[in-house]
C-alpha cells in the first residue's frame, strides 16, 4: 500500500477543480453539478462547497446519480442500488459529472445513459479526482482531472475520505 495523495494536496486540488469548472461556466448559468454514487459524492460535496462560496447560494443545482440499474454487468454480479436524487430538469443544461476515479470508463458510459432519462442535456462534462490513463476500455476522457496517474491493471487505486475512512488520502494497493 502506498499513499500517492495526502489530504492537504487533495484539498488544494479540489479548490483548483472548482475554479476550473467556474472558469468554463461563469456564474454556473444553466449548469448543473451531478455527483456519482456511491463514492463520487464525497468529492462532489466538496466541490459544491467550494462553488457555493463563489456564487450566490440557491443558484446551484446539485444532484446525485446512481448508475446501478444501467450497468452492463447486471446479470454477472449483483450490485445494491444507492439513492438517486435529481429533483430538477437537465433539459438543455450543461452537466458536470463528478466521480472520484476514472478507470475503464464503463461507469461513465452507464451514467451517460442514465442522464438521458432525466432530459436531453446541452453538454456533459466529466470531472474526476484521479485519472488512470492507459486503462480505458471505452473512448471516454475527463474534462477536469485532479491528478493523472499510471497504475498497472493489477493495482487498485482507492480514494479514502475521512467522512467514512480513517484518513483522507489516495492509495495504491497491489
Amino acid at each position: 500500500m502506498k499513499t500517492i495523495f495526502t489530504e492537504p494536496q487533495i484539498n488544494l486540488t479540489i479548490q483548483r477543480l472548482a475554479h476550473q469548472v467556474l472558469e468554463n461556466h461563469p456564474g454556473l448559468e444553466d449548469t448543473v453539478i451531478i455527483g456519482m454514487q456511491p463514492r463520487g459524492i464525497y468529492l462532489s460535496d466538496k466541490i459544491v462547497g467550494e462553488l457555493s462560496r463563489q456564487i450566490l447560494p440557491g443558484k446551484l443545482n446539485y444532484g446525485k446519480l446512481d448508475i446501478t440499474f444501467y450497468r452492463d454487468d447486471v446479470r454477472k454480479q449483483l450490485h445494491v442500488p444507492n439513492k438517486t436524487d435529481i429533483n430538477f430538469s437537465i433539459e438543455n443544461k450543461q452537466v458536470v459529472l463528478i466521480d472520484d476515479v476514472l478507470y475503464t470508463g464503463r461507469t461513465i458510459r452507464a451514467a451517460l445513459d442514465a442522464l438521458l432519462d432525466f432530459g436531453r442535456p446541452a453538454k456533459v462534462e466529466l470531472c474526476v479526482l484521479i485519472d488512470r490513463r492507459f486503462s480505458r476500455q471505452l473512448p471516454i476522457q475527463p474534462d477536469y482531472a485532479g491528478k493523472v496517474i499510471d497504475a498497472l491493471i493489477t493495482q487498485k487505486v482507492i480514494v479514502q475520505w475521512k467522512e467514512k475512512d480513517p484518513l483522507t488520502q489516495v492509495i495504491i494497493t497491489e
Binding site: 446501478t68 440499474f69 447486471v74 446479470r75 442500488p81 436524487d85 430538469s89 445513459d113 432519462d117 432525466f118
Partner: peptide, 23 residues
C-alpha cells in the same frame, strides 16, 4: 430497500431502466 430506489425511478421523466434487457 431496493424497492425504494425503484420508486424513485418511477418518478423520472423516463420511467424505465435497462437492467433486464437480456432477460
Amino acid at each position: 430497500d431496493t424497492a425504494q430506489q425503484f420508486k424513485e425511478v418511477l418518478q423520472r421523466p423516463v420511467k424505465k431502466v435497462p437492467s433486464l434487457r437480456d432477460v
